[in-house]
Design a protein around this nucleic acid. Structure first.
Lengths: 242, 242
DNA sequence: CGGGTACCTACCCGATCGGACAGGGGGCCG
DNA sequence: CGGCCCCCTGTCCGATCGGGTAGGTACCCG
């Protein structure tokens, strides 16, 4: 699944992002080893505050701002920053506009690190942002030092979450052991497995081929983190899925 | 208690005992096709009542009585009846004396049918009596017709239980699918099965051979009424054995 | 329209299972 | 002392499983 080349990465700022070399030079990008940053927030005050904070950091440079999703798209296309500081609440349109923008950025510019910087902590928002490719999630009331630290972390292609959003994820992981969501079919197959039926018989019972049953069984085991049907049945039984 | 006369033997001069040929005569037959019966009850009144009831049946003949376990043993050894009507409450010694007697009879004289005829219905007593070989269990307040019917049933080597004791057994069977009692070893193996381990790995884990593991697995499946390890794990999980 | 998901199918193959047969030994008990 | 239970072991064999590879259809959605 998600096991990219796993570029181990040099924390060394030199190659942290991709500012230099490449034909893709960016007009506003910093120079040498500076992190180019675009701010996306519908409040000018906030953008100004962030700019003053970040410009104080030698290795960072705010190369652009955007107050709306549309502006953000333009800025992204033209500037290709290393980092996007994104407020999910853009206030302009639907409340998923920020999330949608997050999806779009990570899909179209996978080399751009999206760090969500927003006001409220909402479980669903945190998880959804992560799901849509955000590499970090911090609340606006963090210290400036934590903010710049998070930016550098994301620039290294690592994850940066403040403690509260981290615990949200942890909680989610605890209740969601990876993939407990079995499909209808898988659930039915699982029940028959627990009844001691062989793949072949399960197939004749459900009017599908034995091969298909094996297909489902493997998916069930993968989702439940089991290596045998027996373990799958046990885990499912513990989770009361059966 | 008061167990006055209750002479063990043939109070009946006629042909209560073994008049003709061979000590090894077919135990059941008093004479031709009569069912020889021994009554075991510590109350003379009850014995007398039973005797009068049963002697009214042409195909039955009470050949002996006993008020205590000791008397019963003597009567059994000498009379070898087809049927023993046994009251589990003998009142003389320990309260398991009747059950112990039941065990002894069925072990030493397997051809003798033991029909428990007692006053109270106690789940544990019913199950224990069955476990010790009783072929029937009826409460004393049944109709005389039902009693004689039960005796004939037991004489045919079938089971005779009144509706209440039958439901006791049924309830027990529902909660006790035959043999839920796993040994220590089996329980340990079962846990490892639920962890998705193969027989081989379970063996190395428990320092026993793979063959032995298969041995245990088969016993586990048999006891849980499962045909695969997956089903066994499921059943065990339901029964909270795991 | 490409991308994601659920669902379906085939062929192959080594590992494992389930069952049958045929034994060991130690402990408890009538 | 036999009988029963628990525990242990071996060999043989066909059925099944787990996993890999390589497709197919249908649907929804950005």
């Amino acid at each position: 699944m998600n096991t990219p080349p796993s570029r181990v990465m040099h924390p060394d700022p030199a190659g942290a992002q991709r500012p230099n070399r490449e034909s893709e030079r960016q007009p506003g990008s910093g120079r040498h080893d500076q992190l180019s940053i675009v701010l996306v927030d519908d409040h000018a005050i906030v953008r100004q505050g962030l700019r003053s904070i970040l410009d104080r950091e030698e290795d960072m440079r705010v190369v652009g701002e955007a107050a709306t999703a549309a502006e953000a798209r333009t800025a992204l296309e033209q500037l290709r920053p290393a980092i996007v500081l994104l407020d999910l609440k853009l206030g302009t349109g639907s409340d998923t506009e920020g999330l949608d923008l997050c999806s779009e950025i990570t899909r179209r510019y996978p080399e751009v690190g999206v760090l969500v910087l927003t006001t409220f902590l909402d479980d669903a928002y945190v998880l959804e942002a992560v799901h849509r490719g955000a590499k970090g999630y911090v609340i606006k009331d963090v210290d400036t030092s934590e903010l710049v630290s998070s930016i550098r972390t994301v620039a290294r292609d690592e994850s940066a979450f403040d403690s509260r959003s981290a615990s949200v994820m942890a909680r989610s992981l605890r209740t969601t052991p990876e993939e407990p969501a079995l499909t209808e079919r898988e659930h039915r197959v699982l029940e028959l497995l627990a009844s001691g039926l062989s793949n072949r018989i399960v197939g004749t019972t459900l009017f599908i081929s034995e091969t298909t049953v094996k297909f489902h069984v493997r998916n069930i085991m993968r989702k439940l983190g089991a290596s045998t049907r027996a373990e799958a049945v046990y885990e499912a039984s513990k989770l009361d899925l059966i």
